[in-house]
Design a protein around this nucleic acid. Sequence first.
RNA 1: GGCCCUAUCGUCUAACGGUUAGGACAUCGGCUUUUCAAGCCGGUAAUCCGGGUUCGAUUCCCGGUGGGGUCACCA
Length: 433
Amino acid sequence: MKNKQVIVRFPPSPTGPLHVGGARTALFNYLFAKQNGGQIFLRIEDTDRERSKPEFEQNIIESLTWLGLEFDNAQPIRQSERSAIYRAALEKLISNNTAYVSREEIEKKDKRGEVIRLRNLGKVITFTDLIRGEISFDTTELGDFVMAKSLDEPLYHFAVVVDDWRMNISHVIRGEDHISNTPRQILIQEALGAPRPIYAHIPLILAPDRSKLSKRHGAVSVTEYRDQGYLPEALVNYLALLGWNPGTDQELFSLKELVKLFSLERIQHGGAIFDLEKLKWLNREYLKQVSETIWQDCFTSDWSTELRPKLIPLLRERVATLEEAKSFIANGEYDYFRTTPVVARKLLKNPETLSQTITLLKSISENSFNSEQIKTALTAYAEKIGRAAVLGTFRVALSGRERSPDPFTIASILGKKETLTRLQKILNRYDVE
RNA sequence: GGCCCUAUCGUCUAACGGUUAGGACAUCGGCUUUUCAAGCCGGUAAUCCGGGUUCGAUUCCCGGUGGGGUCACCA
């Protein structure tokens, strides 16, 4: 077999909630691993004790789980728990003389008097990126860079290289912002005698102004989207399409399909703007299919269980997110389905049509009082008098609103009895001919 | 600023030398069950610029310009 075992990792640092950019990186790693029958590990890069917080680690794990991305390690690997491994590697390099303890001038108060630096020969490093091809760097300008503050305090580049080595990582799939970190890491690998993984740098996710996507542009974390009522399937689908496409016109994919279709070669080279409108559209598509149980959560407990399933279809085609549905309900948009609405006289354009509408509705049997039958019963009359006059009045009389679903649907949900009661009441009140 | 990456409709993208430059979101117009939403139909809209290579460049090469990244004892 020409392919060696695929082992990838997703290594977030727990200094903030999981960002959509990070989520996409995790997704691409996941898709690549699954497609190749490989493994994917979650590694928490918490070497910076100051900035790393357990709640962020929690948030990251929660977000990944919510998205449906499963990892092969039940417990995350934490760099903070691996200092012995880094220490041994550091000692090896020092005894090799490929690294050395350097005495520093302390210009800043929190700097160390001694740090560990790599002995950099300053050669040209060339590596192959699966997405971009060959990339070369002259490492001279890097100088003898610092790899660790002390034997027990490795810095990012060193910890990454040691871990990727010890974890037998075959492919490093990460953000484009790491391209210029790569030569430095390769230098460390070579000093260590570690094999070079295959690199693939994916483009960054940009804000609408093409700058780096950050908090000031609105929601950036996965949990924020979850809390705004987006479905994980929609976010996964959207993120997959941001910078990748299968080469066909297909736009809707399940995670399973993505595993089948994904390929690193088809990943875009340039950064992509995060477009909330398209995410909304996708969310809407998934919302149309999602089970009724999920929609039930949009109702407060005071909504009857008979009424809910009748209103869910209306919600499905109206809102783009679950949160929107909740506030729709909370704002009383559908209250007229359970309480007789107050109907303002000025909204009632042609109340005189109500009496004929009532007569026509009475001819429909209780059992077939559905939106189709109601429409059929009223069509001829509406055509004759004017649709706006008949149907508009009908709709307002039932809902009390200027905007609502069509009157046939409203009437069918209310039922024959309630519909006739409401119409009659209004007819009586305004005492029209 | 040095180094690196990058460049097709407003946005996400297809076209791996020959197409009326395709699709999706958004937008605009029409239709539909007054209205709103959805849905359906249709329209507007792009190859950054300049040189090459070639019979022929969106596509290959070079330069410019724009955008992004990176230059920490952060990750």
